[in-house]
């Protein structure tokens, strides 16, 4: 019973973190209908940012949060105007985005190898204090609790942005029906650029905690993280950020429970879950809700 309790709570921590990993990808898809295959690479760049904040300056990686949110948001705006409007003029932006962002992913990976080398890097888990945290009689790494807390905070902020700000409501209008949003006078590119920036910045935010949740970082890990993110958002529902929370939690629970009871199959099960969800509900678990929002 103790192991089951441990796994369930660990799944929640892990799931909240992975919801943060996926939410940026889903926001970008929901608003722009483009698939950012470089999502994992932005996350890895965020991880390197935290690595250097810690190793060069000796600062706690939490200091990387404000720095990276500003830097990645700022850099993503010109990237948006360089790439996305052209993509959306094409006949099939979704498919073209696949190819274009795959190329971008390869470019980022290659540049990261030049800049950071191929060595695996990480940050000692002791930066969040040497002692683990006891919750409900179970002992968890402090870094997991911090990562989950930041994940929850990040998702809450995105929720507040989408549902309680004017630009957020405009964002949801575009997500629901882009052409109608244009007719109503919403500045689609301005709103989309902000959503794109938030998507990239949340990827970098998740990257700050990846050394503790995903293990050692290396330039080649980006594509694998993108695939995991994609799994999570498809389980929840493509285009629905709230579905990502559900997808993340299911992913975390599936992984932790399998690691506890069927270790060898742990990495495969979330993908089996994805296939099951797609067969039963092809739009994802919250698929219908997003269309009627």
């Amino acid at each position: 019973m103790s192991l089951l309790e441990y796994a369930v709570l660990a799944g929640i921590f892990y799931g909240l973190y992975f919801a943060l990993v996926g939410v940026g990808l889903n926001l970008i898809f929901g608003v722009m209908r483009i698939i950012n295959l470089a999502h994992g690479d932005f996350l890895i760049l965020g991880a390197y940012g935290a690595f250097y904040v810690f190793h060069l300056f000796g600062w706690n990686p939490l200091w990387a949060i404000p720095i990276e949110l500003v830097v990645f948001f700022g850099l993503s705006l010109p990237l948006y105007y360089l790439l996305v409007p052209r993509l959306q003029k094409s006949g099939d932006p979704e498919m073209l985005s696949f190819i274009l962002f795959f190329g971008l992913s390869q470019v980022i990976e290659a540049l990261a190898v030049f800049a950071f080398g191929n060595d695996q890097r990480s940050i000692p888990a002791s930066v969040f204090g040497g002692s683990p945290v006891t919750i409900a009689g179970q002992v968890y790494p402090a870094s997991w609790v911090v990562s989950a807390a930041v994940g929850m905070a990040g998702i809450t902020l995105i929720y507040l942005y989408l549902y309680h700000t004017r630009i957020g409501r405009a964002t949801r209008a575009i997500m629901t029906e882009r052409s109608e949003a244009v007719v109503t006078g919403i500045s689609v590119h301005r709103v989309s650029a902000v959503a794109f920036g938030i998507g990239i910045a949340t990827a970098a935010l998740a990257g700050i905690f990846s050394p503790f949740m995903i293990g050692a970082i290396a330039p080649s890990l980006g594509m694998g993280i993108t695939v995991t993110s994609f799994t999570i958002i498809v389980i929840g529902s493509l285009g629905n950020p709230l579905g990502t929370v559900l997808g993340g939690l299911l992913y975390g629970e599936a992984l932790m429970l399998m690691q506890t009871f069927l270790t060898s199959w742990a990495e495969m099960f979330p993908y089996a879950l994805l296939i099951l969800v797609l067969l039963v509900k092809p739009t994802g678990l919250l698929g219908k809700a997003v269309r009627s929002a």
């Binding site: 796994a7 790494p141 997991w144």
Partner: peptide
């Protein structure tokens, strides 16, 4: 005596099983 997938990056749960 157990194996894990090569891509395993989280060992906390497994460590608790080992401790048992």
């Amino acid at each position: 005596y157990e194996s894990v997938p090569n891509s395993t990056s989280s060992y906390s749960t497994i460590l608790h099983r080992i401790a048992a």
